Computed example of a mutant assay.
Amino acid sequence: MWHRMAGWTRRRWSKARTGMRRDAGMNTAEYAMGTIAACAFAAVLYKVVTSDAVASGLRATIERALDAPF
């Protein structure tokens, strides 16, 4: 009984290690693509927020909020 369980455990761990080796490079590529996408989104958001139309709209909204009676 002990020998059968030991073999089963060995095969199980061997399969787990093989599976981990097969995907080793995928995580780095996914993180790199995610980082690039996040940086691109931040750049677009920065351009939108600092544009004249958005800046004047935000300024007008804040001025209206500050001038509103309590």
Rank of each mutant, 00 (worst) to 15 (best):
W2S: 14
W2Q: 13
W2E: 15
H3Q: 14
R4V: 14
R4Q: 14
A6M: 14
W8F: 12
R12Y: 09
R12P: 00
R12V: 04
R12G: 08
S14W: 05
A16W: 09
A16Q: 11
T18V: 04
T18N: 06
T18S: 13
G19S: 15
G19I: 02
M20Y: 10
R21L: 13
D23Y: 10
G25L: 05
G25P: 01
N27D: 07
M33I: 09
M33T: 10
G34L: 13
T35F: 08
T35P: 00
I36S: 10
I36K: 14
A37W: 02
A37Q: 09
A37G: 02
A38G: 06
A38V: 04
A38W: 05
A40I: 06
V44R: 14
V44F: 07
L45W: 05
V48C: 05
V48I: 15
V48W: 01
S51W: 03
S51V: 02
D52K: 15
D52R: 15
A53Q: 08
V54R: 00
A55N: 00
A55K: 13
S56A: 08
S56K: 12
S56V: 07
L58T: 05
A60P: 00
A60W: 04
E63G: 01
R64M: 07
A65Q: 02
L66K: 05
D67E: 12
A68I: 01
A68F: 08
P69F: 02
F70W: 13
